[in-house]
Design a protein around this nucleic acid. Structure first.
Lengths: 217, 217
DNA sequence: ATTCGATTTAAACGATTGTTTAATACATTT
DNA sequence: AAATGTATTAAACAATCGTTTAAATCGAAT
């Protein structure tokens, strides 16, 4: 995954390559020289088009968010006509693919989750543009599954329980790949893993609801 | 959290400070000069006691694992006389505290989870010394809850579902702190969060078992 | 006291970092 | 064809990195 084609303008090659390198190495460890070398561009170009390495990082991060939302829209899970059980499964499947897909989007979500794990000044934009919309959608689905008389903090906790199951495969991917590589080996494996998370969560949520309704009917 | 007392030997001050700085900045971004400055030690000491920055890192990582296991033993959850439901709750509570405790152990588990997220050559030691024992203990508990006639891959998936719910609070702590800070605000909040994860997981596991026994009684 | 090994120190090493410079090449307009 | 503004280049910049050196300092044994 080195050296970009030259048919793309310098400015764009720089941005796309920056997403890759920053995602692989992190802000500090990534070097302007490696980015430029991979992009087949002179070192001075970074400071010509962007003012500094830092500006390049924030622009690359913004582009990564934008492309991630464009390439993996949550369309299916947003359909309010579907039963909430199915919407939950669709959301999880889509989210997990977004996290694990190496071929198209690997670098984008890698850069985003890296920024979350090690926030820079650019974190606020990630939260507003990439996190909150997903939170809101999942919250709507979970609220339907839990019923309307559940207090908000319980909904929030269940949200995080679901998201945590997905995010583990991103943040602890190195562990999963060594101890249970078959869970994310290929497309079908990812689908099966997503299906497990959906059914695991659904079992908990429906029981959660029944337990709550038993205490205050 | 700067400048160490001088009553401790140079060698130890270097190691403990290295855990802090490597945890905060990562291997590449951390500088031996900052480590030495905080430890009140000459720059050359790193190469005198350890041969290089890289060796210092691996030694610091090993010490972090050792101290994490010593300060937060899993003793309670290991008691096989307790009912598995209680052991599960104890395990999760202990694990979550280990991840979120800033006062004593913050740097230790931060360094460990950082190594997982961005593996260096030292990852193998982490897996063998810190991960596998926890996996094995949790697996034993989950297996009891699921019954003996569940296939192994299902057990593994449930393991990861539980661990993922806990690890989210470490890897996406920046998000949780901005969107739902009340969930990890203090000791009691962490206990409540751990209790939620335990009950959420237990609901899923018991239903999981019943569903499996229904299909193959 | 003197010797001797272990420790600490200030200074410098070469390599690499982000950034800047000033000259060159290119494309478009006059 | 000359002029003009943009884009690209090689080279150098100062700062910082990990590491090394060689001298200074310390502590205990002789």
């Amino acid at each position: 995954m080195s050296s970009k084609a030259l048919n793309e303008p310098t400015f764009d090659r720089l941005l796309h390559t920056a997403i890759e390198v920053f995602a692989e190495r992190g802000f500090k460890a990534a070097t302007v020289r490696e980015i430029c070398s991979r992009a087949n561009v002179n070192v001075a170009s970074v400071n010509y088009y962007f003012r500094s390495k830092e500006v390049l990082y924030s622009k690359a991060l913004a582009l990564a968010i934008q492309e991630a939302n464009r390439l993996y829209p949550m369309a299916a899970a947003e359909d309010k006509n579907l039963p909430p059980e199915q919407r939950l499964a669709l959301f999880i499947d889509n989210f997990l693919h977004k996290l694990l897909d190496d071929s198209h989007l690997g670098y984008h979500s890698k850069l985003i989750t890296r920024e979350i794990a090690e926030p820079t000044k650019a974190l606020d934009e990630i939260i507003a543009t990439a996190i909150i919309p997903q939170f809101d959608l999942l919250e709507e689905i979970v609220r339907q599954l839990l019923g309307s008389d559940i207090d908000r903090s319980a909904v929030k906790r269940c949200l995080l329980s679901i998201l945590g199951q997905c995010l583990l495969f991103k943040h602890s991917r190195s562990i999963v790949e060594r101890l249970h590589p078959e869970l994310i080996a290929d497309e079908n494996a990812i689908k099966a893993t997503a299906a497990h998370i959906a059914s695991f969560s659904l079992l908990a949520l429906t029981q959660y609801r029944q337990a709550a309704e038993r205490t205050s009917p």
